[in-house]
Nucleic acid binder design. Structure first.
Lengths: 334, 334
DNA sequence: GAATGGAAATGAAAGCATTTATGGACAAAG
DNA sequence: CTTTGTCCATAAATGCTTTCATTTCCATTC
């Protein structure tokens, strides 16, 4: 069943059928009804590919992330997909991994598919070395690129992120003023936001004249046992800390498990602050104090901006949200 | 830059360019090279929409799930996307929610997009009442439908799932023979697999002549605190149990938190078994004993089957995997 | 060495199902 | 009688795939 069949059966031209389909003006109510009834009768649906060819769009957005099973990224994708669907767009999901090469490939895949926009979810898409970010600029030549949790100043690239630096700085500051001075920073990534968080911690410590303590976990993202092990080793080597700021909730959870293993009481003997305020924050006993980085709001803003760009070809280039410290059981009154 | 431009610059017909592009035989090495060099020189990429129109496919699979941020579903999506991409397919993600109406809409959306296949991820897509599953049969009229963790006997519908019934039955049996007789079953869903799990528990209890104890949690999927609360209330009402089988890891985690809240020692005074063997199993202290339902293998088999269907129009209709009980800290030696 | 057959290489043209620009017909308004 | 505006049809454009017919080339055969 094509538009030709419908036009024939309705006794009009295909152009008129198309106009009815697309709600254009200049078609009398009478013919509109006639066409609609024929369409309904034969359950006609326009061919999406032909439509794509004619309109040069299939209203599709490419969502790219390193690993869509990551708790935080999965949540972001969930929000984005919903919001984009509400705006009449489909989402093509593409997991790129962490290698620059595979990322370039994934991006090409999306561009070849002629998506209307690309969303890069996760701060790890921005490399420190400016030249490595060229792959993003190349993509932006063809289609708007939205960065969630990363920032890059370039034409046709839009950045939406949370002020990780200030969030961590303030959280660290509050822990310090609550009387805890030996605070360990536990992190596992040197991504764009990873760096921001770390310097937030470092500067807060410095501002109070305290000696920073950092521990880097190089294992995989999900290896909670490995994280716990590493903290236990730290303990064996005699390192003492009564506060711990983690770069994400998983690391924070590992800290709680570490404490439980050794019988260290949380929060009495060890205060822990996580990051992301994800479901993991509810998993531990006591529950995690964690920094909420407003993921849903970030996504909504990203979607809105993308829609603006797609319609007016103009949108707010960069937006920064501020995070919230959500107090729960792993910290004493701050 | 179109195929016409290339054909002109290479001094061949567009048909030849197309043949080169699609790796058809019957084109001399000499012309192939000439065409390829022109393509390279002008960085030509075929227009995906025109291609879709000609081939009547854009090599796209629709992945549908209720909520892609769900830990378990997100993992499934991750595996599927990777595997499909390896086979040269793109994925359109569509979260349908849990309502029949919105599901029907989402399915229509995917069908209109002319995807080559649809994957329904999650056992909640199968309704008990046969007539409610018609929406799946309708879709299967147009495109193959793959069910991950659900089963439905129908033309063009393929089911891949884990034997949840036996997994839970055996796990319960092992807990019983280890000497624990008062076992609570904690669940939150009556989906297809939810039912299977429950009857696995019930039958195991019955087989040993024991009185079953069931507790249903009606809150949202992620409300761990609510789950914990509910168990605490149960305790207040005087219900005693020394074993707990949970329908998923989140419920199991809530059980561990419940025990920690009351100072009940796990596993000495309470044994807990979760389901899914997800990352959550690593989150608690002690870590969760959990049933692994072979998600990656399920996904791989699903992808393979779908590829078979898409090429030969023939694939294995139904496959059932068996689960593994992964022993960790929340159970004593079983 | 010419004739023949068959396979390989190529081109022309017909789809594929839309959108959209152009312009014609007709009615109402001036 | 001309202008304006509404409604609609014709036809072009979109960029590819694929069938079918034609040409070219090479190996046989006599």
């Amino acid at each position: 069943m094509t538009i030709y069949d419908i036009s024939e059966k309705a006794g009009v031209s295909i152009a008129t059928v198309s106009r009815v389909l697309n709600g254009s003006a200049n078609v009398s109510e009478e013919t509109r009804q006639r066409v609609l009834s024929v369409i309904e009768k034969y359950e006609y649906t326009p061919n999406a590919f032909a439509r794509g060819l004619g309109l040069n769009t299939m209203r599709t957005i490419g969502i790219m992330c390193a690993d869509s099973s990551d708790l935080y990224l999965a949540k972001a994708i969930y929000y984005l997909e919903q919001q984009l669907r509400e705006n009449g767009y489909h989402c093509i999901l593409c997991c790129s991994g962490y290698e620059l090469n595979t990322r370039r490939e994934s991006l090409d895949l999306l561009l070849q598919q002629k998506v209307d926009g690309i969303i890069l979810v996760g701060s790890n898409y921005i490399y420190e070395q400016e030249s490595q970010n060229k792959y993003i600029l190349d993509a932006a030549l063809t289609t708007p690129v939205m960065l969630l949790n990363g920032a890059l100043e370039a034409p046709n690239v839009y950045s939406i992120l949370c002020d990780d630096y200030t969030s961590v700085q303030e959280a660290t500051g509050r822990m310090i003023t609550s009387g805890i001075h030996d605070i360990l920073y536990f992190y596992n990534s040197n991504s764009y936001s990873g760096k921001k968080k770390r310097s937030g911690y470092l500067n807060a410590m410095k501002a109070h004249g305290l000696e920073p303590m950092q521990e880097y976990f190089s294992g995989t993202h999900e290896d909670i046992s490995g994280m716990t092990e590493q903290l236990l080793k730290l303990h064996q080597r005699g390192q003492v800390f009564h506060g711990l700021i983690a770069a994400d909730d998983m690391l924070a959870l590992a800290a709680v498990k570490y404490a439980q293993t050794l019988g260290i009481r949380v929060p009495d003997e060890l205060s822990v602050i996580g990051y992301n305020n994800s479901i993991l924050a509810q998993c531990s006993y006591p529950e995690l104090t964690s920094i909420d980085n407003k993921l849903e709001a970030l996504c909504q803003h990203l979607t809105d901006t993308l829609m603006d760009v797609l319609t007016d070809n103009y949108g707010i280039k960069n937006t920064m949200f501020s995070g919230d410290l959500i107090l729960r059981g792993t910290t004493k009154a701050l």
